Simulated assay, not measured.
Amino acid sequence: MNLQRTNPTLYWLQRIGFYLLVTVITFYLLAPFAWAVLTSFRRSNDLGLSPGDFIKAPSTLDNYSQVFANASFQKGLLFSLLVASGSVIISLLLGSFAAYALGRFKFRGKQMIMYIILAVSVFPQIAVLGGLFTLIRSMGLYNNPLGLILSYLIFTIPFTVWVLTSFVRDIPGELEEAALVDGASPLQTLFQVLFPVMMPALVTTGLLAFINAWNEYLFALTFTSSNRTVPVVIANYSGASQYDNPWGPIMAASIVVTIPLIALVLIFQRNIVSGLTAGAVKG
């Protein structure tokens, strides 16, 4: 029954309420980011102004110039890119093999393994920090990119395996059977047949794991002393004196760090949508 015809007043009230709710949620989500962008274009002396005067204050690019001239920030960007990319690549490689085994084969203890993976993925980082720090130091990987990559695998691999396993289950088994009939080995079937089909899920999982590794702070602060990632570099920003809070440069650095993530999401948005909805509807 068409509500617009039977009860126009109720129909328009629902429409107005829906768009009002969407507007409130959008403002709630975007207002902090918009204020951070605005702060990045203001001078330090403008931070004490009232909100109205702060918005009307003239813009400046001095904060961005200061950020890009900071050698620690430049090094942190490269270090974050190295660590995040390395952890994602290893996670996708190992996670794909594990997901293929868990999604295709039946063996004893399979359900228990899935529960363990799920438990590890939600385990708090602080709970393993002490033991992991001792392990990293004993392996001689303290302040080393490899040590940070290995520590990030704790939360990237379980997430990757869990997401990819549910996707592998929904891939038709006829694809593998046809490849095996044509003489393909199991590895050839995995790399040449299943991986292309899994590409949306791989892109989605890899991007989400990259964002988690890129924004990670606790492990990066604990396992490094000089080779800092971007979140730690930004957190250690200091002003000209102990009473000076350099909010302008901090916000400018935060915006610079966020832009690559936004660009990746926009570039791969189709893959992300198809990867997140894969297996949601069965024909």
Rank of each mutant, 00 (worst) to 15 (best):
V128D: 04
L129A: 05
L129G: 02
G130I: 15
G131E: 14
G131W: 15
T134P: 00
L135W: 11
L135Q: 10
I136P: 06
I136T: 03
R137Q: 12
S138Y: 11
M139G: 00
M139F: 07
G140L: 14
L141Q: 00
Y142N: 08
Y142V: 10
N143V: 15
N144C: 12
P145N: 01
P145V: 07
P145M: 09
L146C: 02
L146A: 10
L146H: 07
G147M: 09
G147I: 11
L148S: 05
L150H: 03
S151G: 15
S151L: 09
Y152L: 14
L153E: 04
F155P: 04
I157W: 09
P158F: 14
P158M: 09
V161R: 02
W162H: 01
W162E: 00
T165V: 09
T165M: 13
T165P: 09
S166V: 14
F167I: 10
F167S: 10
V168P: 04
R169E: 15
D170R: 07
D170W: 08
D170M: 15
D170C: 12
D170E: 15
P172R: 07
P172C: 03
P172N: 06
G173Q: 12
E177F: 04
A178W: 13
A178M: 13
V181R: 00
V181D: 03
D182Y: 12
A184V: 04
A184C: 06
S185L: 07
S185C: 06
S185R: 03
L187S: 05
L187E: 03
Q188N: 12
T189W: 10
T189Q: 13
L190E: 07
F191E: 02
F191T: 14
F191Q: 09
F191G: 07
Q192E: 06
V193G: 02
L194F: 08
L194C: 06
F195M: 06
P196E: 13
V197Y: 05
V197S: 05
V197I: 14
V197T: 07
M198Q: 05
M199D: 01
M199Q: 08
M199N: 10
P200C: 04
P200G: 05
P200D: 01
A201V: 01
A201Y: 02
A201R: 00
A201Q: 04
L202W: 06
T204Q: 10
T204F: 11
T204L: 14
G206A: 05
L207R: 00
L208E: 08
I211C: 05
I211W: 13
I211S: 00
N212D: 12
N212W: 14
A213M: 12
W214L: 13
W214H: 04
